[in-house]
């Protein structure tokens, strides 16, 4: 299983808001392991999807330079179940952006109905090359790949409407070569 809990962004406005989609399919393993015989999307993975969408939005604000981690789910409410064949629409609004962390408000809708709402708190970990116990947690190449997969540079804009480009960030040859040395 790959740890992608959003399929793509349909809106991404730097420092402000984002909308991401997640299609739920019976082909996903977790639906068979959660409640066998009663396939529903686990609420924890709905939070993960909202956290991934919000995390990328927050991380973009910091120029994708550093690790941003979900520090805390301050509040989360759920309504009903999500079944295979349904699509979750995650909407993220930035609430607070500070040098040491950020707060976002997130909602998940299914077929127009509110399914979940949460307040998510992100902490900033500092330098992206931070290597606790010698293990590098964060590769620029993997992040860039993920951003492209979920369409950040297809729909992403600055608040003035100017498109986000990968070349605006530190994804240059030098950065990617640093990744190579770690492999």
């Amino acid at each position: 299983m790959r740890w992608f809990w959003i399929d793509r962004f349909t809106e991404f406005v730097s420092g402000q808001r984002a909308t991401a989609l997640k299609c739920v399919s019976l082909g996903e393993d977790h639906l068979h392991d959660h409640l066998p015989g009663y396939p529903i999307m686990p609420s924890s993975l709905v939070i993960e999807g909202m956290a991934q969408a919000g995390g990328l939005l927050v991380s973009e604000h910091y120029g994708f330079k550093e690790l941003v981690v979900l520090g805390k789910v301050s509040r989360a409410n759920f309504h009903g179940h999500v079944r295979p064949g349904q699509m979750l629409t995650y909407r993220i609004e930035i609430d607070t952006l500070r040098p040491d962390g950020a707060v976002v408000m997130a909602t998940a809708h299914v077929e127009g109905e509110l399914h979940a709402e949460a307040q998510l708190f992100y902490a900033r970990m500092g330098d992206a090359s931070h290597q606790p116990r010698g293990v590098r947690l964060f590769r620029k190449r993997d992040l860039l790949h993920w951003l492209r997969l979920v369409g950040v540079f297809e729909v992403g804009v600055h608040p003035n409407g100017v498109r986000l480009r990968s070349s605006d960030y530190l994804f240059g040859e030098e950065e990617l070569l640093m990744d190579e040395k770690d492999v």
Partner: peptide, 9 residues
């Protein structure tokens, strides 16, 4: 410890 940052915000 993470709560202190949240409280500060």
């Amino acid at each position: 410890s993470i709560d202190f940052l949240d409280i500060v915000f």
